[in-house]
Amino acid sequence: MTHVNNILHFTILVWFAALLGCQNITRFDDPANTYTPETTYQKLIGEYPFIDIASRAVPVSVQEIKNITYIRYGQRALQLDLYLPKSALIQQKPGIVFVHGGGWRAGFRTNFTPMAIGMAERGYVAATISYRLSPEAQYPAAVHDVKAAIRWLRNNAKKYGVNPQQIAVGGGSAGGQIASLTGVTNGLEKFDPKAKKSSISSAAQAIVNIDGLSDFTSEAARFHEDDPRKNPSAAGAWFGGRYAEKTELWHEASPLFYVNKNTPPILFLISAQERFSVGHKEMIEKMKPLGIPYKVAQIPDSPHSFWLFDPWLQPSVDVVAGFLDQQFKITRSDNAR
């Protein structure tokens, strides 16, 4: 009888999670998924007593559409939330897909809600997505999911007023690395299993990497990401093994090694904590001779996860919107604010 009750309890939890459909965790009650603005605030408030959690309140100038399923894997539905400018002065608006962080194993798409709102206020259609975390599906499943989200947004461009030729992908921390890898692998079917069955491209026209790694293989990255005291480390859990065991995958997942003449423009928005953006300088050195546009912007005296908090959110939005406006040739008079 106890066994039956346990099964019933689990079934109810799964059903309830599907009904809510708003978070991307492997179990509805997964205690390991603790990467939120609230938990991060508690870690940072001692050193940064002036910070506030960025508001998720949606202003009247922005339309929020929540819990849209963008892809299914059997019974598993991955969803996104969409933020649209209500009064944009241009009919077709650029889009951006945001990928949350959390060490590839935690986090929620609502972590990027404040930035998505900020981008909508600047005239962008912004999507915050859930994707499969490492306890559910290891590398490269998350990249597959992000490409699927870009394809969904492009496929629904007319419905939501998106310019299908102006879709960026961005993210923070692990989400920054995933977003960057998604963008630099445009056209590579290995990272996009749905490509052969769809006429809709999953290519991103610009990349926003917010404090995410560009090279897993460097000594500086492995010092933290392959720490032998962690069993497994966050990266190790994602790859299914340490660097020595899964060297090929650690190399394969590093955006640094995909730079070519067709690489999209990249914004590196970084904190004052250098360990999180390892590899971006080396990546830029590869981009320079190819003439690929890039920008490095640092938020001074900031912690990792700065984009979750005021006073850093608005400067971050300004940098991201400014960079994308330039790449998409959008003048300030064209863009809602």
Rank of each mutant, 00 (worst) to 15 (best):
G123R: 00
D318N: 15
D226P: 06
G322I: 09
I96L: 00
F28H: 06
Q75F: 01
V97I: 07
P293G: 13
Y243T: 04
A127T: 02
E189A: 13
Q314Y: 05
D29F: 13
P59T: 00
V296E: 06
A137C: 12
V184M: 00
H280K: 04
Y258L: 11
V184I: 08
R242E: 10
D310R: 09
Y73H: 12
F10W: 11
Q79V: 14
P311A: 00
A336T: 12
Q273W: 01
G240D: 12
L84M: 13
E245A: 06
L188K: 09
G46L: 11
Q327K: 07
K281R: 03
N156V: 00
R242P: 04
I129K: 03
P31S: 04
Q138C: 11
A141W: 14
R27Q: 13
A18G: 14
P232R: 08
A206S: 01
K230V: 07
E245W: 05
I96Q: 07
P232A: 05
R27V: 08
L249E: 11
E248C: 03
Y35N: 12
K288Y: 01
T2V: 12
A141Q: 15
G176N: 03
R229L: 15
A149L: 01
A179Q: 00
P135I: 08
N67D: 15
W238N: 15
A18W: 13
S199Y: 07
A149R: 02
T263S: 03
F323H: 05
A137G: 12
H100C: 03
V125E: 11
V162C: 02
L8C: 07
T182F: 02
S305N: 14
V162W: 10
F98R: 01
K329N: 08
T185K: 12
V99M: 03
E47V: 09
Q314W: 13
T39E: 01
S134N: 12
A149Q: 03
A244R: 11
R332M: 11
G172S: 04
L20I: 14
H3L: 13
A77N: 14
K197S: 14
W104T: 09
L84H: 02
E282W: 03
